[in-house]
């Protein structure tokens, strides 16, 4: 999870490293810790450390972690030569390692030789049938070939065994959303909220899915989850504030003739619009007119 202060730290280090201010190793460590995908930067700065034998030897055993990190980054940037060199160095150092075996299979994936990669993963699974990373790579392999229903099948099978893996639940939810299977996606997000109730982004994603599904029941629930996102973020999530406005407007359309007002919190929407107006005034005062006209078309006001 990337918190606000960690994000600020990452951006600070990134601009420092990009401008030649040093701290490349700290940057690479932070990228690895936060699991963010900055492959081009990792490749550039990681290689400059690896090519400098003095810097490299000062890392000690961390050197091999860096080789792995750079290899994956190079595959992501399609610099397959560099990736191959890194994997070869690792293979020389650890001839028996399963982790390097996974890396070799990943290199096959990057080359696009799906069949060989599949074979490599199968043989890795024969050695250790409970290797979670390899199971996940098979899902990714299906996804890379555009076989999304296959990926869903693999993922469901994987989740039957490893139910606590929230990364896999999230991946499944995102695949379902991309296929517009919102009911199934909603189930995955429910699972994620249950396992990590304090992550506002899952509440937000669940509310988005419910809003997309539509229907008065779902809209009312979506509004509640947008509210809980605001609660968990202290009102600093703009998307949740907009969500409240959209939900209120949609609910008002449903309950027009029936005169059945949403009684739980009548000023929720006016508070949300006020918060949005304040934020726009502070950070993008030029866009304020766009915001007010959007409110007008939604028939909400502060």
């Amino acid at each position: 999870m990337v918190t606000k202060s960690e994000e600020t730290e990452l951006n600070r280090l990134e601009s420092q490293v990009d401008n030649g201010g040093g701290g490349a190793w700290e940057y690479l460590c932070l990228v690895r810790k936060l699991k963010v995908r900055r492959s081009d930067k990792v490749l550039k700065h990681g290689l400059s450390i690896l090519n400098d034998s003095k810097k490299r030897s000062s890392l000690g055993s961390e050197e091999w972690t860096l080789y792995e990190e750079v290899a994956i980054a190079a595959m992501d940037c399609q610099s397959l030569e560099v990736a191959k060199d890194c994997v070869n160095v690792l293979r020389k150092k650890f001839p028996e390692s399963k982790r390097v075996g996974r890396l070799e299979a990943l290199l096959l994936e990057a080359k696009g030789s799906w069949g060989e990669a599949e074979k490599a993963y199968s043989s890795l699974l024969e050695d250790n049938p409970f290797d979670q990373v390899v199971h996940k790579r098979r899902v990714a392999l299906a996804k890379a070939q555009g076989n999304l229903s296959g990926a869903i099948e693999w993922l469901n099978k994987y989740l039957e065994t490893f139910m606590a893996d929230h990364d896999a639940w999230r991946e499944l939810a995102e695949i379902y959303v991309s296929l517009q299977m919102y009911k199934q996606a909603a189930f995955c997000y429910e699972e994620l909220i249950l396992s990590q109730p304090t992550v506002p982004l899952f509440h937000l994603a669940y509310a988005d899915v419910l809003y997309t599904l539509g229907g008065i029941e779902n809209l009312l629930t979506a509004k509640k989850y947008y509210s809980s996102t605001i609660d968990l973020t202290g009102g600093k999530n703009t998307r949740a504030l907009f969500g409240i406005c959209l939900c209120t407007s949609a609910i008002a359309q449903f309950s027009k003739g029936r005169n059945k007002e949403d009684k739980d919190c009548p000023d929720l929407q006016s508070l949300a619009t006020a918060a949005l107006e304040k934020e726009y005034k502070q950070r993008a005062s030029g866009k304020l007119t766009v915001l007010t006209s959007a409110f007008k078309s939604l028939k909400v006001s502060s």
Partner: peptide, 23 residues
């Protein structure tokens, strides 16, 4: 301990690197 303080407020989820694809 506030969930909305800068140290605790999550702004983005980690990229799901276990499932990353290269095409």
């Amino acid at each position: 301990i506030h969930p909305h303080s800068d140290e605790n407020r999550m702004v983005s989820l980690p990229d799901n690197l276990d499932f990353m694809i290269f095409n």
